[in-house]
Write a protein that binds this DNA or RNA. Structure first.
Lengths: 258, 258
DNA sequence: GGTCGTCTAAGGTCTGACCACTTTGTGTCG
DNA sequence: CGACACAAAGTGGTCAGACCTTAGACGACC
């Protein structure tokens, strides 16, 4: 009985058309999309009111429960504001919220861009951390470093190595005492992890990586910002070189010259 | 008539207790909170299953519609995953998503931190933009600059000045051709705007601001990265000094020395 | 032994009713 | 005439119960 054209949907407004059209995507999701389209299509601006729940039901040919679930979803996403006794309104997500949403959709960023950002963020972070880190924090940092060292010696899997590497850098960022920086660095590491085929993660030369990390940690322990910055810069550049080379190799292997 | 104990809620499970207990917070919101608490309280880990919808209804003493709306909200926030025919599960938001959420909750960041980040981000951005911006982009940048200049000449309100200032800097970041940087810069500007009392926005000395912006724009037009970086650094530092001074004054005025 | 139904539990949707909040208009009283 | 009170309409909020669809498990049949 499903997979049939919905009953008397005359040529007037076949908004839904076919129910269960194969995809079996939940109804409320499609309703949410349709409401989004409605807003965009009719050029509704933030603050504008859109049809009431009951009206939307009729418009879209679904029950009120589905419309309400769709609205809850849209409201949670900040696209819509539902006000008891007044109606449903297009919300005005502040610029920051919108940027965040675009951020979360920004899945694919080039490796070059990400590595450029690493240098931008991590070099000053290392400098600040050298100035500001407490002895306690330095001890914790050393512990993390030693774990990394041990993991390399034990020839741990690349997945694990990458996680430890990320953790070390994140820790340094944290000790720079700048919450915005910490957040951004977290995001960056996350996207880097996703962008690199996990297998070619820790740049290939674990031994070298350990040496470079050691230089950074030593500079931090010595409270020497300039040396910390330099060490961080060297490390990131070397990592970048290795990663990009790998990617190039990979590409060459899959698409042989012809 | 509200503000009364809900009817025959015996001592069995007075989970809800009083409806409309003053706050009139929608039920489904409270339900969502309770489910969150349930997950946290019982130490449920990502992947764990939580009680079915009908069970939750009974547990919380509400209807299934409310439970479902709450779940929709939680699902949209990525805290929960609802799977047809199987049940409701605690979701495993990836680290990036969680960082993003913390980011959006991170409302109050010190001005010092934000200005430090401005320097970190905008100085290299100016350098890259000097190298990479196309003639077309430079023309657009100049247009923006002239609008700012004109606004200053016309003694526009601080609100508007700040918006134009933000737009100019955002544009530069964009021309650096690094999507991650652009996003981060957008977020930063947004938080700066929120952190400064809007009135003390554009640092006070509009004329000086225009001159400094002019230096940056000129360096970009000349495709001179070093000069662009230097100009950007000067501008940000001068802006920071002015802003922090203002804040200090403000504080002194409201809390006179004792 | 593998395959195919059937049964069960779970989410998905619908219906219609009623409750609560807002606004508005209207009517009464000062 | 004006101000306040109340009632009605419109809109979101909640409830109750029913039925449908899906996923998985279990058992009968080939």
């Amino acid at each position: 009985m499903p997979d049939q054209p919905v009953t008397e949907a005359g040529p007037g407004s076949p908004v839904v058309g076919w129910r269960w059209m194969g995809s079996s995507e939940p109804l409320f999701l499609r309703v949410a999309e349709q409401i989004e389209r409605f807003v965009a299509g009719n050029g509704l601006a933030p603050g504008d009111r859109l049809p009431g729940e009951r009206e939307l039901c009729e418009l879209l040919g679904v029950s009120r429960a589905s419309v309400r679930e769709a609205l809850r979803s849209l409201e949670t996403r900040g696209l819509v504001r539902v006000r008891h006794g007044k109606g449903v309104f297009v919300a005005a997500p502040d610029e920051g919220e919108r940027a965040l949403q675009r951020f979360s959709r920004l899945r694919e960023v080039g490796l070059e861009e990400l590595f450029a950002m690493r240098e931008v963020l991590e070099v000053p972070a290392a400098g600040w951390a050298a100035t500001e880190a407490t002895d306690e924090q330095l001890a914790s940092l050393i512990a993390t470093f030693e774990q990394l060292e041990q993991a390399v010696r034990a020839q741990a899997g690349p997945e694990q190595l990458r996680a430890m590497d990320a953790r070390l850098h994140l820790q340094i960022a944290e000790y720079a005492n700048n919450r915005f920086l910490t957040m951004t660095q977290t995001l960056l590491q996350e996207m880097l992890g996703r962008s690199m085929d996990t297998t070619l993660s820790v740049t290939g030369r674990p031994a070298r990586s350990v040496r470079e990390h050691a230089e950074i940690v030593n500079a931090l322990v010595a409270h020497d910002p300039a040396r910390a910055r330099a060490a961080a810069r060297r490390h990131i550049r070397s990592t970048r070189r290795a990663a990009l080379n790998r990617v190039a190799e990979e590409r060459q292997r899959s698409v042989p010259p012809g």
